[in-house]
């Protein structure tokens, strides 16, 4: 371990709470103003799953970024955040901004100390980690969306799964929607 590396980490650790706090603020700014106060104030995680997930998981993620070796925790935490964003009213880029804003937060916090202490290399290295985080988030986002499409696609069959099994002899997973009409009726609502 070289000394600047340790110092840089030490600095991040010392300012950890502030950075995570600012990150959370920046992340929540993507919600309507009227909602942000609810997301922040309601501390009960059952009454406020979105706010609770964000504050818990952003904290976890930052901890993971600080640690030397990566664990299973990182993808899990990213998944928890992305899973929520993927079903809310966001475009894909907006949904993932929750991670890209971290770079902005870091830049504001670190601009001076980096220049004063000559931590440019360490800073770039850490930014690379954030980039990787964004990539990971992108993978997970696509996975969530795929899952949603699959759920959508499967539902038509799942709704009449019993009929399909009995009449078509399959659970419908390989059949296009609507094959249940063999039941003699019109599958309503589809």
């Amino acid at each position: 371990m070289n000394a600047p590396q340790d110092q840089f980490r030490e600095y991040l650790r010392r300012h950890r709470d502030k950075i995570v706090h600012n990150w959370l603020d920046a992340a929540m700014a993507s919600y309507p103003e009227d909602t942000v106060s609810f997301l922040k104030r309601q501390k009960d995680r059952f009454a406020n799953p979105v706010g609770a997930t964000l504050s818990r998981e952003l904290d976890n993620i930052f901890e993971e970024l600080l640690s030397e070796s990566s664990t299973q925790q990182l993808p899990q935490s990213v998944d928890a955040v992305v899973r929520v964003r993927a079903v809310q009213d966001f475009s894909p880029s907006q949904a993932l901004q929750v991670f890209t804003v971290l770079k902005d937060v870091l830049r504001r916090q670190l601009d001076r100390p980096v220049r004063e202490n000559g931590w440019q290399a360490q800073y770039r290295e850490f930014e690379d980690k954030v980039d990787q985080l964004c990539m990971l988030a992108f993978d997970i986002y696509v996975k969530c969306k795929e899952q949603l499409w699959e759920l959508k696609a499967r539902q038509a069959q799942d709704r009449v799964s019993y009929l399909l099994r009995k009449y078509v002899g399959t659970d419908g997973s390989n059949n296009p929607a609507g094959s249940g009409s063999g039941a003699g009726g019109d599958i309503s609502g589809e």
Binding site: R41, K43, D44, R45, A47, A52, R56
Partner: peptide, 10 residues
């Protein structure tokens, strides 16, 4: 008795 304490203050 969870990691998050709740408050219904408001």
């Amino acid at each position: 008795k969870d990691e998050t304490q709740l408050s219904y203050g408001s």
